[in-house]
Computed example of a mutant assay.
Amino acid sequence: MIPEQFEYFAPSTIDEVLKLMVENDEAKILAGGHSLLPMMKLRFAEATHLIDINGVEALKGISDKGDHILIGAMTTESELIVSELLQQKCPLIPEAAKLIADPQVRNRGTIGGDIAHGDPGNDHPSIMMALDAIFVLQSPDGERTVPANSFFLGTYWTELGENEILKEIQVPVAKPNSGYAYTKLKRKTGDFATAATAVILTLDGDTCSSISIVMTNVGPTALKAEEAENLLAGKVIDESLIEEAAEKAMSICDPAEDLRGDVEYKTHMAGEMTRRAIRIALQRAKGEI
């Protein structure tokens, strides 16, 4: 199907983007385009005005700010993968980016587009929640920050307000004695996850001092498994605790039945991805892999 007619803009600065959004009601932002353009072709989304932000250099790049790394919203998945800074200081992001879609999509798709779309099937929401990332949002009235854990409100529904864009993502650097993992089950290259889990944990000796567990595509948003986290924090993690944590994670799953599987199958796979992610993160924290 062919999308309806629209007016196209290609600004080069953030100020131009915000001005165009104010002047054009219901304008849509075009980042990588892999989510918006298919929806426009199917006429699930309408855009009488399309604002292409690929020429806004201020929205790109990865930089080190001491205890945080700043990532521009228009940074592509491929740029995340090859970033030596991320590989050294926040390796969960490049590892997870390798599992997103395929090389063609990763060369064009952006971290900000993945986040701002609010699709529960996208991978970055759960990764950002596990990392305790902070999102910098900008509007004509100025900037504000929103924690990733309160940004996603529902399917395609986020904290982004009217005439507001995602400008930057701030992620803390990995702590000493920490481990990470993003385990993802998908039917084929390029597909969304049937189920996936992001885990970050830190050890104090053999004891788990902190842990984040967040699941992808088994609810209306990425799901933070808080009961599972509380079970493991402050304990020496063994297989019996991992099994208990997986059961608690499964108990909050509410996946939609589709061609990837029914509710029971997806829930079971979410538990399995959680088990695997905890094991891998634990091994990395111990320096075993």
Score class of each variant (00 low, 15 high):
Met21Ser: 00
Leu30Lys: 11
Pro91Val: 01
Glu26Ser: 12
Lys41Leu: 07
Leu70Ile: 09
Val146Gln: 11
Val82Arg: 13
Gly33Tyr: 00
Gly113Asp: 06
Gln88Glu: 15
Phe151Arg: 12
Phe44Cys: 00
Lys98Ile: 03
Ser126Pro: 03
Ser139Ile: 13
Leu131Tyr: 02
Lys60Ser: 04
Leu92His: 06
Arg108Leu: 13
Pro94Asn: 02
Asn24Ser: 08
Asp64Val: 02
Val136Phe: 06
Ile53Asn: 07
Ala148Cys: 03
Gln104Thr: 15
Leu37Tyr: 01
Leu70Ser: 15
Cys90Ile: 00
Ser35Asp: 12
Leu137Glu: 13
Val146Leu: 10
Ala58Gly: 13
Met39Ser: 01
Thr48Cys: 01
Gln138Ile: 14
His49Phe: 11
Asp102Met: 11
Lys28Gly: 05
Ala116His: 07
Val22His: 12
Asp25Arg: 15
Gly32Cys: 03
Ser78Ala: 15
Asp123Met: 10
Glu95Asn: 12
Ala116Ile: 04
Leu20Trp: 13
Gln87Arg: 14
Ile111His: 10
Glu77Asp: 14
Gln87Ile: 08
Ile71Ser: 04
Met40Ser: 01
Pro140Gly: 08
Thr75Val: 12
Val22Ala: 15
Pro147Leu: 13
Met39Cys: 02
Ala133Gln: 08
Asn107Tyr: 07
Asp119Asn: 00
Gly72Val: 03
Ile69Arg: 05
Glu23Met: 13
